[in-house]
Design a protein around this nucleic acid. Structure first.
Lengths: 337, 337
DNA sequence: CTGAAAGCGCTTACAG
DNA sequence: CTGAAAGCGCTTACAG
């Protein structure tokens, strides 16, 4: 087991003080008026010995861990997996590391995990918040910790958030369907009280009302498994034969919907047009390909990191919270004609 | 900004020494013969004040961070996203946290990231190793750090690994196809020198040779994008009209294959049977559904954490390395008849 | 231009 | 039964 070098070892080997080395290490050589020769020779020696400062000790004294706590609903979902990829990359470029955990969108679990991240002294948070977590988020903000809400915001919590412009996204999708001549559109959603679900439905309803078209709404229980969802959809479609288009509020719902349509021996496209919220790699290759409202994931990730860094700079003053709504992109494919 | 309580604050408030509190905190009250009353009253006070020890200070002195460095090829891939989910859950249950990063299967990047994890003093590693990383992994092991290789192992590196039983998985899939009467089977793979790719191909070749059947092999460049892969496959299928079944070495390849088949106006199932390595949620709902070799992800994750914990116990003696091959499950669906 | 000393918040060997 | 003191590996205000 190779001994790990400490700054003291280096100091002894070089017969100078730890202070001087620390200054050089942190680029304060000029500021502290350390001679150029010393600076240079120490820097060289450090590289030669491959000395790496112990980040733990550094964190303890500086009060910064250079870690971001990332808490998503479920990292195995396509959307969040993509997000995790981009967030990690962008954070890394800014010197930050990601420690992640999964909230399952469960209030109690999220509270526990926030506590865990606090013990670890992460420098801040990027969170997809479950509803009910308002007070805990405020607690973090009160203690000067940056929190960026992601994918959805919390009413009454004044902090940065990065969400899709659900209003415009839903409106555009609805208008697209009506412009294609569909008359009986169904809205299929999860039984959830998250802000973005609510927004999507509301706008959809309004957009159709503008054209005097009816909207059938079907809610599927949040916790149900795939097969149950399929069953529910089969029932719904059978009961509502007049429907000529379906809008799915999430891509996973669309998958169950596709399965239901297959089971009913109906034809996507001919019998029923489909639009899904949240694009998925598979929508593009499915036959027929599925029209979807795409979230620009890279942009969402970038905005989140930017908002995070900006809050850090502000050092706890939440008045520079950024409320960002990123426009979606409607990927028109074959399932809508 | 609420002040964070330190053990010293508590000591002052209670007029006892930090030592005593530390003992109580770490369940050493009995061992150190601290009076039951003191133990109880301090414990109560700690809870009341909601005191949380600073993990950073604790880590610094104990030399343990209770963090596992997880390095996967790309967390946004379906397989790794699932793995990340289960690893996090199981690690959490054992008191460990996950800090992750993405290797892109790039040797240089992986080396850099290992260095980064070292600076952070993670207690150990779970890695999907790119080829060429042997020396760096050995370096970690020499320094007594547990490393669990995941998804593939490294020739000549004596440490724990958890991989699929690629031999049996490929053999079973090949035998299944021959038993269904397919005579001209193609093997589509990525141009990569990872151990598991090599194994899969070799076994496939052997299994078909047993039945005196020819095997066409097509390699697709590792770094090519989706559309390029589709193009390559279209070309390949056109050139090899005799093929009646295709085995895809990864599920992403299968997606490009499906697209290619659609572009050629051919019919999966009637014209060409498909089998994919690595299951994907979508294979089950695609029409026709796609037969796949499924990796038991939960089990792989569990074995990895177990191997990790076992190595930690052994405290750097790598002689208790666990070499685990988990059997796959062949999910027979409609694409093979 | 450089260094001795204090301190971040913990743990533990040692002493009483 | 309990506590004073040293130490983990850093940074920085202060002194010279």
């Amino acid at each position: 087991m190779a001994k790990i070098l400490s700054i003291r070892d280096i100091a002894n080997e070089l017969n100078i003080s730890k202070t001087t080395i620390s200054f050089i290490l942190n680029g304060k050589a000029k500021e502290k008026r350390i001679s150029d020769e010393l600076d240079e020779s120490v820097t060289k020696y450090l590289a030669q010995r491959d000395y790496k400062p112990n980040q733990l000790a550094k964190s303890l004294i500086m009060g910064k861990t250079m870690m971001i706590g990332l808490m998503v609903e479920n990292i195995s979902y396509y959307f969040f997996a993509q997000v995790a990829y981009h967030i990690e990359e962008l954070a890394y470029q800014n010197g930050y590391r990601i420690i992640y955990c999964i909230s399952d969108n469960d209030l109690h679990k999220t509270q526990e995990l926030i506590g865990m991240f606090r013990e670890r002294h992460v420098d801040g948070y990027i969170i997809t918040p479950p509803s009910g977590i308002e007070k805990d988020i405020k607690g973090l903000l009160d203690d000067g910790l940056p929190v960026v809400l992601f994918d959805r915001y919390l009413e009454g919590v004044d902090t940065s958030y990065v969400v899709l412009d659900n209003y415009k996204a839903s409106y555009d999708a609805a208008k697209y369907l009506t412009s294609k001549g569909f008359k009986n559109i169904a809205f299929l959603e999860l039984d959830s009280d998250q802000s973005q679900m609510h927004d999507r439905r509301q706008v959809y309803q309004d957009a159709l009302a503008e054209s005097n078209l009816p909207l059938s709404i079907k809610k599927i229980p949040f916790i149900s498994d795939f097969d149950y969802k399929v069953k529910e959809m089969v029932k719904f479609i059978k009961k509502n034969q007049q429907i000529d288009a379906v809008f799915f509020a999430t891509n996973y719902l669309a998958f169950s919907g596709i399965k239901a349509i297959n089971e009913l021996k109906m034809s996507t496209h001919k019998d029923l047009a489909l639009v899904a919220f949240d694009d998925h790699e598979v929508f593009n290759i499915y036959s027929p390909s599925i029209t979807a409202v795409a979230q620009p994931i890279r942009k969402l990730a970038r905005q989140s990191i930017n908002a995070f860094l900006k809050m850090l700079d502000a050092d706890g003053r939440s008045n520079n919270a950024e409320k960002i709504e990123v426009p979606a992109e409607l990927m028109i494919r074959y399932s809508t004609g």
